[in-house]
Design a protein around this nucleic acid. Structure first.
Length: 438
RNA sequence: GGCGCCGUGGCCGAGAGGUUAGGCAGGGGCCUGCAAAGCCCUCUACACCAGUUCGAAUCUGGUCGGCGCCUCCA
């Protein structure tokens, strides 16, 4: 299994199975409903965990929830509520919305507010090593004393543009590990440097270490986090003597800038709205169409195409017999077929290639393989039908009788009636099939 | 200004020095009472300009265009 690693800009092999493979993915800062783009790292991490487990790896996935942050203070103040209440509410929204994807939960979803002792401890380590210093109740990381600073993003510290100068810092490039409480901030925690709250970067270093140990295999997150967030995490943890992450996975951004979507669909941008509008299967399949580290455009056309593909799989499985037909014997007979998928996914988790393989299985009627493959991506159960309303079944039976009597006007009227109810009727060799229209 | 990523057919998107990606949409056909679903056939490609090579969409250089990040404030 090879994965593209940001720090070496190359494909890096995972250790021999069973590993372990310990993964830390940066989750969201919670202050509002998450955006559909925020679902990409979540989906990637959950898929990757499923796949690695399938491959026989011992996997642990930690995905944090940042519940202390400037944006939370700002949003709460704007709404006139306590920041801790907003964070708790928005964290619940996040769990609720990502649960709609039907992919399960990460093994651990730590909160910053529950990791304060570890965060403070890590900062104390850095202060003791003189890689951090206190200034007016803040604590800053001494960038110039960490030689490898920039090794992940390949930014040279000297080239970084200086933002708002802060007189308390020794060097404009230094970043905050701990921030003393400001009057406008209603939530704060005690520390050796006074009340305040952690900087954005240190929390991830502390949470990763708390649940995965001082070294782990994969650190993931959005490409926008490479600098400064992950660069700073790396500097803090390595500076404190930890090995930290071996492979850095950064997923590409979901582009939402196209005006076609905002004009035609209104403000469909949050995850839950997208799932409600298109269904979880369509969104998941849409994510499969692009390589995880490339940007993808979110558009109506792309979602329509994904929906059509979902329908084609659904139809194939519908007419492919009951799931119980997928016997172990049939699977082992198709082991060569499965190896195709293994090859595609072991090559940097190429889900687009996997999708093409699925279409091949669909077209050749290899439903046991198809079910097994789709299930990896949370697309199992596609063929599970909604219960047919008895009155529609009666209409369909009446239509069969009308067709037998060559009364096609009546048959078409009945079909129209069924379609009005949101269902479709298909004639089959054995009679008819009623399917929910989507 | 700095550090990177990317430009593939109507659309979405893999691939990566010679060999079909796949899907969606479009056209034609089969099937059907008509449909639906399915199947068959089919049309459009590798931003531009140089170079390396027997051969480049794939390598190199340049041009143009798009995107991400640049330190409390993704």
């Amino acid at each position: 299994m090879k994965i593209y690693d940001t720090s070496t800009r190359s494909l890096v092999a995972l250790p021999e199975r069973p590993g372990p493979v310990r993964m830390y993915f940066c989750g969201p800062t919670v202050y509002q409903r998450i955006h559909v783009g925020n679902a990409r790292p979540f989906v990637l991490s959950m898929w990757l965990r499923r796949w690695l487990i399938e491959c026989g790896y011992d996997v642990t996935l930690v995905e944090n929830i940042t519940d202390v942050n400037d944006k939370i203070y700002d949003a709460a103040r704007a709404e006139g509520i306590a920041s801790t209440d907003l964070a708790a509410q928005a964290a619940a929204w996040y769990v609720e919305d990502t649960a709609l994807l039907g992919l399960g939960r990460p093994d651990v979803e730590p909160l910053v507010t529950e990791t304060m002792p570890e965060i403070v401890g890590l900062i104390e380590d850095l202060v003791a090593r003189e890689l951090a210093y206190e200034a007016d109740g803040d604590v800053y990381f001494r960038v110039r004393d960490f030689e490898d600073y920039g090794c992940l993003s390949r930014q040279r510290p000297d080239d970084v543009q200086e933002q708002e100068p802060n007189a308390a810092k020794e060097d404009p490039r230094d970043f905050a590990l701990w921030k003393g409480q400001k009057p406008s901030e209603d939530a704060h925690w005690p520390s050796p440097w006074g009340d305040g709250r952690p900087g954005w970067h240190i929390e991830c270093s502390a949470m990763a270490e708390k649940f995965l140990g001082t070294d782990f295999e994969i650190h993931g997150g959005g490409l926008d986090l490479v600098f400064p967030h992950h660069e700073n995490e790396l500097a803090q943890s390595r500076g404190a003597g930890r090995e930290f992450a071996k492979i850095w996975m950064h997923n590409g951004m979901l582009q939402l800038t196209g005006e076609k979507m905002s004009k035609s669909l209104g403000n469909i941008a949050t995850l839950r709205e997208v799932v409600e509008e298109w269904g979880r299967e369509t969104l998941l399949l849409y994510f499969m169409t692009g390589l995880w580290r490339n940007p993808i455009d979110f558009s109506i056309d792309a979602m329509d195409a994904a929906a059509s593909q979902v329908e084609s799989f659904r139809n194939a499985l519908r007419s492919g017999g009951a799931p119980s037909e997928a016997s172990p014997a049939a699977d082992s007979a198709n082991d060569a077929g499965w190896q195709e998928l293994v090859a595609a996914l072991e090559d940097d988790f190429n889900t687009a290639a996997a999708l093409a393989i699925f279409h091949g299985w669909r077209a050749t009627g290899q439903h046991a393989l198809l079910r097994r493959g789709l299930a990896l991506f949370g697309l199992d159960g596609l063929e599970v039908e909604d219960a047919v309303p008895p009155d529609l079944a009666a209409l369909a039976r009446a239509r069969v009788a009308a067709r037998a009597a060559k009364d096609f006007d009546e048959a078409d009227r009945l079909r129209e009636q069924i379609e009005q109810a949101g269902w479709g009727v298909r004639d089959t060799v054995s009679g008819f099939e009623l399917v929910r229209r989507r």
